[in-house]
Write a protein that binds this DNA or RNA. Sequence first.
DNA 1: ACGTACTTGACAACCGATTGCCATAGGCTG
DNA 2: CAGCCTATGGCAATCGGTTGTCAAGTACGT
Lengths: 348, 348
Amino acid sequence: MFAVQRGTPMATQPMATGRPATIHDIAALCGVAASTVSRALANPERVNIRTRERIQAAAVELNYTPNSQAKALSSGRTGAVGVLVPDITNPFYFDLIRGTQLQLKAAGYTQLLVDTEESDEVEASTLEQLRKSADGVIVAASRLNDESLAAAAARMPMVTVNRDVDGVPAVIIDTPSAMPQALDHLISLGHTSVAYVSGPAVSQSSARRWDALSAAAEERGVEVRRLGPFAPKTQSGAAAADAAVHSGVTACIVFNDLIAIGMLQRLRERGLRVPEDMSIVGCDDIFGADFCNPPLTTMSSPIEQAGRVAVSMLLAQLNPLAGGGNRNRSVMPTHLTVRGSTGPVPSK
Amino acid sequence: MFAVQRGTPMATQPMATGRPATIHDIAALCGVAASTVSRALANPERVNIRTRERIQAAAVELNYTPNSQAKALSSGRTGAVGVLVPDITNPFYFDLIRGTQLQLKAAGYTQLLVDTEESDEVEASTLEQLRKSADGVIVAASRLNDESLAAAAARMPMVTVNRDVDGVPAVIIDTPSAMPQALDHLISLGHTSVAYVSGPAVSQSSARRWDALSAAAEERGVEVRRLGPFAPKTQSGAAAADAAVHSGVTACIVFNDLIAIGMLQRLRERGLRVPEDMSIVGCDDIFGADFCNPPLTTMSSPIEQAGRVAVSMLLAQLNPLAGGGNRNRSVMPTHLTVRGSTGPVPSK
DNA sequence: ACGTACTTGACAACCGATTGCCATAGGCTG
DNA sequence: CAGCCTATGGCAATCGGTTGTCAAGTACGT
């Protein structure tokens, strides 16, 4: 298709034709009707092989590319999928985005990536926009309430990531399941006084992580207090660290690695050593968790794969033909990765 | 527009109408022609104020949103701008992307973000796609050769970032200008044997940085050797570190922070201390450069602003009306940020 | 050789907007 | 009151495809 670009750039000349070729140009060149061209390209079996080949040759010669706008308008399908993330600068979403991008491209779809700026209003208005300009949507870490989200899902195919709403297919990154591991790890190091540093109040992930942690704590008879909420940014780490120190705990399990890394920095500024004076466990194992100082003990999961799975589930909704068992829920495993930010409780 | 969503979700009911409202629905409701509706919404002065208000009220009532596909098809403008980056998981691009996203949204445009996977072919084919589905394109760190890029720019409005090609407006992040600073910094610490760890062979940024550095080195009479090329990923840091150690230099200036961070890790593994045994200077001051171990001395610039400027320049091309002086080139200042990864030359 | 069934391709409506052109109506001037 | 101008809004073509319908053409069996 892009031989002109790829090979010797100047080998062939037709390129410079004013505007891109349309099916009408092809039709004229071949002496057939535009509709025949359309069929030859879309339902090849519907058209005589000889005509078809003539048309296909002409299409190549004219460097024809279908106009996606027109295609979308007439067929109703846009060939695009929206991907909504709350904060594009949060490294957690990089791998997710890359996963969706790869899988979508493989299936011939275009990805429309939108940063909803942690705002439910932006999210809602984006979803409404996308209703016309995308065939479906993947919503990561939605900030919307259940009703709005369910309503939006009723209007267009949707898959959520890390958000459970009745009737909406979801990919869940099962960080909560690693909470007991994390707690046991801390207990085995002698900690008995632990804090959970929570994320945004509207984050279902944060709530689920807290639930799992406090349940595990109760079973084991240790006390876990909750701090926060904090915005999921490194800057929030300072306040979180101060709160943790003030609360007197010896270890923290933190909503995500961004906050945890911020805490690491703040604790260092305050002259406290990690893990000697305070142990820190993050969540997500984002870019940076392995090379911060000290490297962060955190919970890892296959994020890119989560993105790919989300796309597969969405495409299954869009093309029900493929017999793919229409799963409604996919859970990604998570495990604790121990690095340098956790250690024995201070002897004191 | 989304009162239904935002306020009390169930306060008003019309919402659930099968498919979205069109101008024809509004026209029918108001007893006017569709074209009048179109004008009332686009050129309000072209239609009587009473009719206009009636139409606008109906539009609100029906929860009308224009169909962007149809609009694009008939008007020729898509309201979308493509943003191409070589690797979406490279933190350098986060802030750039956020800058473009914010500025585009402010101007009412949609951002189409594409990861070209460091591939010139993907980049070329994406550009061809976008020609129809976007009004313009911002290409960051293009991997395309000059001819192909210039050809693509001739076919659609384009602004490049960190890539200078004749006739193509560009935003240049002037890291080369900080190279003398970096070198002086190292010289002041006693280093006389320095290496430049270069990036991808096709990266113009890397070439420009090397040119600036070797020129500065010649002026000052110090020797700088070149290592590489290396892919711009942390994984490449291991090979780069080994090469640096083998070459016997006492300090490295590295194409970007990803490689530099990878080198930090590798040097640590090999039991070498930074900066005691080897000083490292990165480029770009990405997410992570401030909290790695040791924190990285690097070159900082206003990346998000670069994204915003790129968008402004592109929009100036798209709407020549606004008298905005049509700059063809915008240079973002860069400065050295000294952190912990540089220190005095080993005494030995 | 005729009827039937199937293949092939043309015609035209349609998707949802934009926009040039024209008809009408009303106000104004003289 | 005639004549003209302007404000207003309708008609219809157009953007580039898709798709239902139908007529013509082909091949086949009897």
